[in-house]
């Protein structure tokens, strides 16, 4: 067993897991953070996307032990009890999701993009979503929502939608 401590969504959490445990399994099975989805489990679909030390990664391709000591942000870390994150809000407004299974991964990819690049072009958004497969929507409304969220985050960096 290996002992893994990660700072997940601002909270320090520790678990003792078998070494072959992926970060995704740690989040879902040990920390009950089931927002990140198990899709393909080989890094093709992006449903498991989380942000580790500021970078979007496939949590199915990272061993939990490799995340030891790092900052991990999952979909559960975006909204507060009062309000959705502006990206989530925009996805709702634009009806960007249908079945929703890919949603947490897509939104985390968008979050990582907007953290690094507050004013992305459509091509840059498409590149950022290249590792997130959605079989329902065709991506167009996601891209519109991300553009809208980018605008909101740029104009009103704090205290929005209160």
């Amino acid at each position: 067993m290996v002992t893994v401590t990660i700072n997940v969504n601002g909270e320090k959490r520790t678990a003792s897991v078998p070494p072959e445990t992926t970060l995704l399994r740690l989040l879902r099975d040990d920390f009950n953070l089931t927002g990140s989805k198990l899709g393909c489990d080989v890094g093709d679909c992006g449903a498991c996307t989380v942000i580790v030390d500021g970078k979007a990664v496939n949590s199915c391709l990272m061993l939990a032990a490799q995340a030891d000591g790092r900052d991990v942000l999952t979909i559960e870390g975006l909204a507060t009890m009062d309000r959705l994150h502006p990206i989530q809000k925009a996805f709702e407004k634009y009806a960007s999701l249908q079945c929703g299974f890919c949603g947490p991964g897509v939104i985390m990819s968008a979050k990582a993009l907007l953290d690094e690049n507050p004013d992305p072009t459509v091509q840059e958004i498409r590149d950022a979503l290249g590792g997130n497969l959605c079989r329902c929507t065709g991506y167009v409304k996601m891209i519109e929502a991300i553009q809208d969220a980018a605008r909101i985050l740029r104009d009103e960096p704090v205290e929005i939608n209160r």
Binding site: L61, S109, G131
Partner: peptide, 9 residues
């Protein structure tokens, strides 16, 4: 190579 998530790892 791959996508953002795989290039980051």
């Amino acid at each position: 190579i791959g996508a953002v998530q795989t290039r980051n790892l």
